[in-house]
């Protein structure tokens, strides 16, 4: 049995890393907004989904114009990433302005329900527009990076099976890492990043330091949503087919990743995302083997959410979180 698990390990690691990188960046959006507003922005999964659709729509337009073949794929991708992240960033900022800011002083539950409402709204809006334009709400984009690359893992250790990777894997992972490093630098090393942390720790006092708190919150939503939207593009590039409901489960898992890393903690979210991605792929590959076929690969979702429950029971502050003392 162990041998069988080891056979698939190289492939599991590769697929897990790609998925984990996606979770990690979406988790960043949850954790940033939670850190600053103590709001679980359930619409964030839908921002990711919207990004996937916007990106695919741009790619389809490009390919209609015949640009895809005439431009290097990487330049096309960078272009699409930039346009999409600006658009979804503005979308996130708009949502905050219209839906959350008027509720800034309302009980948390009300804002949470609003977030769920926004999430449904975005799903249906995207579905409506896609059906109108396309006749079908499931969309398959052009394949930018579809070269299969074989990795001879068996030459490292004979028990491993060879793995294969789509070339998009390297793109997804590379872009994800660049985004994470950039965000980490921004938050920890720049003036506005410092203002963001200050607002998260004590909004009232930050305002006394001449910080325009509304501006900082808007900026947080812009960055979180821009990253989320860009990740949607990466998802579409890696997995090809998208529908308006991809944001729901993926959002929940990214949220799980954020909780796992300690919600509000940016590095924690990155780590949690990668870990959930790896665990999920590991479960998908090995559950049928370990359970002798009783549990199918589709139980991987149960696996991810079982982690959420276990973390909430035994370490509710997350792996990197700090225990918060309720102020009286």
């Amino acid at each position: 049995m162990i041998e069988q698990v080891l056979h698939t390990l190289p492939q599991v690691l590769i697929d897990g890393l790609a998925l984990g990188a996606v979770y990690a960046i979406v988790a960043l959006g949850y954790t940033m907004v939670y850190g600053i507003l103590e709001l679980i922005n359930f619409a964030h999964g839908e921002i990711f989904m919207t990004g996937a659709f916007v990106g695919t729509a741009i790619l389809l337009t490009f390919s209609g114009l015949g640009w895809i073949t005439s431009m290097p794929a990487i330049i096309t991708l960078v272009l699409v990433l930039i346009v999409t992240s600006v658009l979804t960033g503005l979308l996130g900022m708009g949502i905050e302005r219209v839906a959350y800011r008027p509720l800034r002083n309302a009980p948390k539950l009300i804002t949470l329900i609003t977030a769920i409402g926004i999430s449904f709204l975005l799903q249906d809006l995207v579905r409506f527009i896609t059906e109108l334009k396309n006749g079908n709400y499931i969309l398959t984009g052009p394949n930018l990076f579809n070269k299969q690359i074989g990795i001879e893992a068996s030459s490292i250790l004979s028990v491993f099976n060879d793995a294969s990777v789509k070339s998009s894997f390297f793109i997804v992972l590379g872009v994800a890492i660049v985004m994470m490093i950039t965000l980490d630098f921004f938050v920890n090393r720049t003036k506005w990043g410092m203002a963001m942390r200050a607002v998260a720790q004590d909004r009232e006092t930050a305002a006394l330091m001449t910080v325009n708190v509304n501006k900082v919150i808007a900026l947080t939503f812009f960055i979180g949503s821009a990253l989320g939207g860009a990740t949607g593009v990466l998802f579409a590039v890696q997995y090809g087919t998208i529908d308006p409901y991809i944001g729901f489960i993926l959002g929940l898992k990214a949220f799980t990743a954020a909780v796992l890393g300690g919600i509000g903690n940016i590095r924690g979210a990155m780590f949690g995302g990668i870990l959930i991605g790896l665990l999920e792929m590991f479960a998908a590959a090995n559950l049928p083997i370990v359970s002798h076929g009783v549990l199918g690969a589709e139980y991987k979702d149960v696996f991810a959410f079982a982690i959420l429950i276990i973390v909430l029971i035994f370490k509710p502050e997350g792996l990197f979180g700090k225990v918060t003392v309720e102020k009286v």
Binding site: E204, A207, L208, M209, T210, V211, N212, V213
Partner: peptide, 8 residues
């Protein structure tokens, strides 16, 4: 005047 402006 909001606080960030009085501070300014």
């Amino acid at each position: 005047t909001p606080p960030h402006v009085t501070a300014f």
